[in-house]
C-alpha cells in the first residue's frame, strides 16, 4: 500500500460566488515512504493548496487523501488535529512560530501535546537543536532571531515529535541563497537519518535540483512527475 494516496482532489475557492476560482482540478498522486519530493509550478498553480489539503489544513471539495492508511478527508476537525499532531510536521514560508513562546517552548509544543514528559522533551529538544545549530538560542523569543534562524526553529518544531511526513511550503522563500542551501542540506539529512517523508513546494531552482522526485503543477493539474 502506498504511504500517500491522492485521488481526484478538487479545490474550489468561493464556490458559487462571482469570485469563484478553481485551485485544483482533480489531482491524482501516490507517494511512497521516505520520498523527498518537490512540488513546483508557477504562482497560482495550486502548490500550497495541495500541500494544505495533504496536511488536512484545508478541505477538498471533491476527492480523497489517504495517508498511512487513514482517509484524512473523512476526519472531523478534532480527529484531524490529533492526526496532524501524531503524523505530520509543517514548515511554513513565514515560519509561523508562536511569538510569545521561547524557541525551546516552540520546539517542544507538539511533544507536550502528545504527552511527552519534561525530561523527554528536554532531551529531544537539545538533540534537534544541536543538529540544527540553534541550541544557543533556546531561551530566546523568535522575534530576536534572524530569518534563517527562525526557519531552522520551524524545522526543529516540525521534526521534534518524529512525524511520518513533513510538509514544507516554500521554506526557502524568505531566506538568502546561503541559508536556503543550508536548510535543504539539513532537510536531506533528516530525510536520510530520521527516515521522514518530505514534500516541499517551491519554485526555487536550487530546491528543485535537490529533490529526488519533482512534480510540476500547472493550472491545478499535474503537468509533470519526474523521478531522478
Amino acid at each position: 500500500m502506498n504511504f500517500l494516496n491522492i485521488n481526484g482532489v478538487k479545490k474550489i475557492f468561493n464556490e458559487g460566488k462571482e469570485s469563484e476560482s478553481i485551485a485544483l482540478k482533480g489531482v491524482d498522486l501516490t507517494i511512497e515512504k521516505e520520498e523527498f519530493i518537490v512540488i513546483s509550478g508557477p504562482s497560482g498553480s495550486g502548490k500550497s493548496t495541495l500541500l494544505n489539503i495533504i496536511g488536512g489544513l484545508d478541505s477538498a471539495n471533491e476527492g480523497s487523501v489517504t495517508l498511512d492508511g487513514v482517509e484524512i478527508t473523512a476526519l472531523n476537525e478534532n480527529a484531524l488535529a490529533l492526526f496532524r499532531r501524531e503524523n505530520i510536521g509543517f514548515v511554513f514560508q513565514a515560519y509561523n512560530l508562536i511569538p510569545v513562546l521561547t524557541v525551546k517552548e516552540n520546539i517542544e509544543y507538539v511533544m507536550r501535546l502528545m504527552g511527552y514528559s519534561q525530561q523527554e522533551c528536554d532531551a529531544r529538544v537539545m538533540e534537534v537543536a544541536k543538529e540544527l545549530d540553534i541550541d544557543a538560542y533556546l531561551d530566546k523569543l523568535p522575534d530576536h532571531l534572524s530569518g534563517g534562524q527562525q526557519q531552522r526553529v520551524a524545522v526543529a518544531r516540525a521534526v521534534a515529535s518524529k512525524p511520518k511526513l513533513i510538509l514544507a511550503d516554500e521554506p526557502t522563500a524568505n531566506l538568502d541563497s546561503k541559508n536556503g542551501e543550508k536548510l535543504m542540506a539539513l532537510m536531506q539529512k533528516l530525510n536520510k537519518d530520521e527516515k521522514v517523508t518530505i514534500i516541499f513546494s517551491s519554485h526555487d531552482p536550487m530546491v528543485i535540483a535537490k529533490a529526488r522526485r519533482s512534480i510540476v503543477l500547472k493550472d491545478g493539474l499535474i503537468f509533470e512527475d519526474k523521478v531522478r
Binding site: 496536511g55 476537525e77 488535529a81 496532524r84 509543517f90 509544543y109 507538539v110 501535546l113 518544531r157
Partner: peptide, 9 residues
C-alpha cells in the same frame, strides 16, 4: 498556527 501543528478545536 496552534491548530495547524496539532491543537484540537
Amino acid at each position: 498556527i496552534l491548530r495547524a501543528i496539532g491543537t484540537t478545536p
